[in-house]
């Protein structure tokens, strides 16, 4: 656990030093919210029915976009083997990576929530909504982190990662959009959707933490 913390610290420090990656994810998220506003003409109508979908497509695409770079540094420098050879369990490496991705993504997502609050005049920074965003992000960050190691092996990874991860994430998207809708008061009852989200988060974290060591083992 302590080793996972070390890996996370290292990755966060790297992410902070190479800010371009995360800033471009943030810029991408902000731009896509604006694009949705123009495309659906969100200024002129009641935005609340559309808002959950707008938010979660933005989160997912920004998340996949950001996860694509999570092993890029290792792949470019050829240091992934060194990381695996160090006396750190692969599970700890994975958990550290996923945690640093999670923290960085939560920052991006909270910024988007703030931006949307200002743009659409709807209170979006509520404890309930933050809980949904947290659980949903845990659910997808572990899978996208796991899948992004494929990127270190194949060409054309930019296109590959969304194509690989999006179909797997559809249950999460459905659950997250519905739960957000319920939190915004569009439909009744968050309970079943929160359950679906939690089950998905648990499932994806467990399976990714299990499969990662087997997949990278040499």
């Amino acid at each position: 656990m302590r080793l996972a913390w070390v890996v996370m610290e290292k990755d966060l420090r790297l992410a902070w030093r190479h800010r371009t990656g995360w800033l471009s994810a943030l810029a991408f998220a902000a731009i896509s919210v604006l694009i949705y506003s123009f495309a659906f003409d969100l200024a002129a109508r009641d935005v609340r029915p559309l808002l959950p979908g707008v938010l979660w497509t933005t989160f997912l695409f920004a998340g996949v976009f950001a996860a694509g770079t999570s092993f890029q540094h290792e792949a470019d420098e050829g240091t992934f083997d060194a990381v695996l050879m160090s006396p750190v369990a692969p599970t700890a490496v994975f958990l550290g990576k996923a945690a640093s991705n999670l923290i960085a993504l939560l920052v991006v997502e909270c910024s988007v929530l703030l931006l949307a609050t200002i743009l659409f005049d709807t209170t979006l920074v509520t404890p309930e909504l933050l809980a949904i965003v947290l659980i949903g992000t845990i659910g997808y960050v572990s899978l996208t982190t796991l899948l992004s190691i494929m990127g270190s092996r194949v060409r054309s990874r930019a296109a590959l990662l969304p194509v690989l991860s999006m179909p797997l994430l559809i249950p999460l998207l459905i659950g997250a959009v519905r739960a957000t809708g319920a939190a915004l008061g569009i439909e009744a009852g968050t309970a079943p959707w929160m359950m679906l989200l939690s089950v998905f988060a648990l499932w994806s974290t467990l399976i990714s933490a299990l499969l990662f060591p087997i997949a990278v083992e040499r």
Binding site: L147, M150, R153, V154, L164, L168, I207, L211, I214, A215
Partner: peptide, 13 residues
């Protein structure tokens, strides 16, 4: 290695 990564998708899918 690529085969193993693909197998991961085969399992998760």
């Amino acid at each position: 290695q690529a085969a193993r990564y693909a197998a991961v998708i085969g399992v998760i899918g």
